[in-house]
């Protein structure tokens, strides 16, 4: 990791806290997390359920604001932005890949990929950019198919095309292979690794599958709201 020290990290998190409230009772989910991810890295975040994995992902994805602490995304302090500003950050800097694909059922693959561009400040050449993204994930011949006409692996490829169409700073994948058989799951992993190598997109994968995690450059273990040395993981 020494080689990164001269570079600015894509994700820079310091002393991040997040608590939920059930009535009056405070339930801490993150208790002072430090994390740095450098450009071009492919990182896995692992941890059992209840470890704060999802909460950390929501923070990194700018879907939620921390209770305390600092989060810089490409140098921009995002931990203090308001709703609509966060929407813009999500739109331009983060490409989401979900476990359940989350495609619009009534829209074609192409229309699904176009969706982030429609909320973008630069909606130019929407068709062209979307079809390029679909070509890149190997679905050039499935552009006008609807999700229910595609296999699970193909649907997840559409979701990945949607994630990269805006050329984001990071791809944030939440259990991207969780709904797929092992063969399709491996194809998705191969695609993410290839995108990381070929285009240099930073990839953060949240998973509990150690086989998936082992294919990344670095694994971050989360335990009880804290990042721990991987040796402690049982």
């Amino acid at each position: 990791m020494e080689k990164h020290n001269t570079e600015q990290p894509v994700i820079y998190i310091r002393d991040l806290y997040k608590s939920y409230y059930i009535g009056e009772i405070e339930v801490p989910a993150l208790r002072g997390v430090d994390l740095e991810v450098y450009p071009g890295e492919i990182v896995a975040i692992m941890g059992p359920s209840g470890s704060g994995k999802s909460t950390l992902m929501n923070m990194v994805g700018c879907l939620d604001s921390p209770t305390a602490g600092e989060y810089r995304l490409e140098g921009q302090l995002v931990s203090e932005l308001v709703d609509d500003e966060l929407a813009l950050v999500r739109n331009e800097k983060i490409g989401f890949v979900f476990q359940k694909y989350n495609l619009l059922p009534r829209a074609t693959a192409l229309e699904n990929v176009e969706l982030p561009l429609r909320y973008s400040r630069d909606p130019s050449r929407m068709r062209e950019r979307s079809s390029n993204a679909l070509e890149r994930v190997g679905l050039a011949d499935r552009m006008l198919h609807k999700p229910n006409e595609l296999s699970g692996g193909q649907q997840q490829r559409v979701a990945i095309a949607r994630a990269i169409v805006n050329e984001p700073a990071i791809i944030l994948a939440d259990e991207p292979t969780g709904n797929l058989d092992s063969k399709s799951g491996q194809e998705i992993m191969d695609l993410l690794i290839e995108l990381n190598k070929r285009i240099g997109t930073t990839v953060v994968i949240v998973t509990h599958d150690s086989n998936i995690a082992s294919q990344t450059q670095r694994i971050v273990h989360l335990w009880d709201g804290l990042i721990v040395d991987h040796l402690e993981e049982a």
Binding site: A87, R90, F98, L104
Partner: peptide
């Protein structure tokens, strides 16, 4: 609801 969440994740603002 999920679709709305997705749209927001992809950058839709309240006004959208």
């Amino acid at each position: 609801t999920r679709e709305i969440g997705l749209r927001k994740a992809l950058g839709a603002r309240k006004s959208d």
